[in-house]
C-alpha cells in the first residue's frame, strides 16, 4: 500500500460538501430502490465526461481518510484511466492506494469485476457510460422512464430475440442486461457478460455512477441479479479454450495480446492483480514455461 499527502488547496476528495451531500442522498435512495436510476446533479470534474466522472463523484462522496482505494480499468491497475484516477485521489484525498483486491475498502472499476470474490464491507464503484439499458431501443427519456415505471421490458427481450434470429445465439457479450430483485432491468455497465454472475448475491455493496448521464444506481449486498435470457436460450458466459498464458488460470476472463506481425497471440488474465498474485504463488502459464 502507498501512503500519500493530500494537496492542501482542495477540499478533501475534491468535491465541495454540498455536492457530496447531494450525491450521498442519491446513493441512499439508490440502495433503497435496487436497480432504479436516481437522477443527480452531476458536476464538472477535472477530467472529460467519458473518463469515469460518475464513478469518481461516487468515490469522492463516500471516501474517507481511512479508506484504501484500488482503481482498475478493464481489470488492470496500470492502464491510463486507472493510473490517472488513482493519482487524482492520492492528490486530493491523500488516501492509501493499493493494487490488491483484498486490501482495498473501495474499488473503482471501469468495465470489470475483480476475479477474487469481494467481501462484506467492501464497496465496488462502477464507471457507467450509458446507464439506461433501454436507451438504444427507445431514445426518449420520458418513454424509458415510463417503461421502467410500468415494468414494460418486452422490448429488451425482442432485442435479445433478434440476436438469436440473426446469429443463432444471444450475441450480446458486454453490458448484458440484468433484472434486479425481479423488478428493475439494469445496465451492469460494459462489463463482459462473464462478470454478470458475480453481481448476484455479492457480499459487497455495488454502486454505479454515470457522470454525463447524471444517474446513480446501486445493488446492496445479497441482492438477486439475474441476466435476461430465454428458456431455450439460457444465459451463458464466455468460455476460453486455453488458460492464461502467464499464470495458467482457468475460469477467468482473458485479454488477447498480439505478439508479433505473424499472427502470434496469447491470452492473458484481464485482472492484472489476480495474475500477478498467482505468479507470485508459483503458478505459470504456457508462455512463461516456454521461455524458462
Amino acid at each position: 500500500m502507498n501512503q500519500h499527502h493530500r494537496a492542501a488547496n482542495y477540499n478533501f476528495a475534491y468535491l465541495d460538501e454540498q455536492t457530496k451531500r447531494m450525491i450521498r442522498r442519491a446513493i441512499l435512495k439508490a440502495i433503497a430502490i435496487p436497480g432504479y436510476q436516481v437522477p443527480f446533479a452531476s458536476r464538472e470534474m477535472p477530467m472529460p465526461y467519458g473518463w469515469g466522472t460518475g464513478g469518481v463523484q461516487v468515490t469522492a462522496s463516500i471516501l474517507g481518510p481511512d479508506d484504501v482505494l484500488k482503481v482498475i480499468d478493464q481489470g488492470a491497475d496500470d492502464t491510463t484511466n486507472a493510473v490517472s484516477i488513482r493519482k487524482f485521489f492520492e492528490r486530493v484525498a491523500g488516501v492509501e492506494t493499493t493494487t490488491k483486491t483484498a486490501e482495498a475498502s473501495i474499488i473503482q472499476t471501469r468495465h470489470r469485476i475483480p476475479e477474487e470474490a469481494m467481501t462484506e464491507g467492501q464497496v465496488l464503484v462502477y464507471q457507467v457510460p450509458i446507464p439506461e439499458p433501454l436507451r438504444f431501443l427507445e431514445p426518449r427519456e420520458t418513454e424509458t422512464r415510463k417503461m421502467h415505471a410500468l415494468e414494460e421490458y418486452g422490448l429488451m427481450h425482442v432485442k435479445l430475440y433478434e440476436d438469436i434470429a440473426r446469429n443463432g445465439h444471444i450475441a450480446t457479450t458486454y453490458a448484458y442486461p440484468v433484472k434486479v430483485e425481479g423488478r428493475y432491468v439494469m445496465d451492469p455497465s460494459p462489463i463482459p457478460k462473464f462478470d454478470n454472475p458475480k453481481m448476484h448475491m455479492s457480499e459487497a455493496l455495488q454502486l454505479f455512477g454515470a457522470g454525463r448521464e447524471k444517474r446513480i444506481y446501486a445493488l446492496p449486498p445479497h441482492t438477486e441479479v439475474v441476466s435476461l435470457d430465454f428458456e431455450d436460450h439460457p444465459f451463458e458466459i464466455q468460455k476460453f479454450d486455453k488458460p492464461c498464458a502467464l499464470c495458467g488460470a482457468e475460469q477467468v476472463f482473458l485479454d488477447e495480446v498480439i505478439l508479433d506481425d505473424r499472427g502470434n497471440r496469447m491470452f492473458v488474465c484481464s485482472d492484472t492483480d489476480h495474475c500477478e498474485s498467482r505468479r507470485a504463488d508459483g503458478h505459470t502459464g504456457a508462455v512463461v514455461q516456454e521461455t524458462i
Partner: peptide, 12 residues
C-alpha cells in the same frame, strides 16, 4: 463522511 459511511452501510 464518517457518519455517512455508517448510514450507507446500515441502509445496505
Amino acid at each position: 463522511q464518517s457518519a455517512f459511511r455508517i448510514i450507507m452501510d446500515a441502509m445496505a
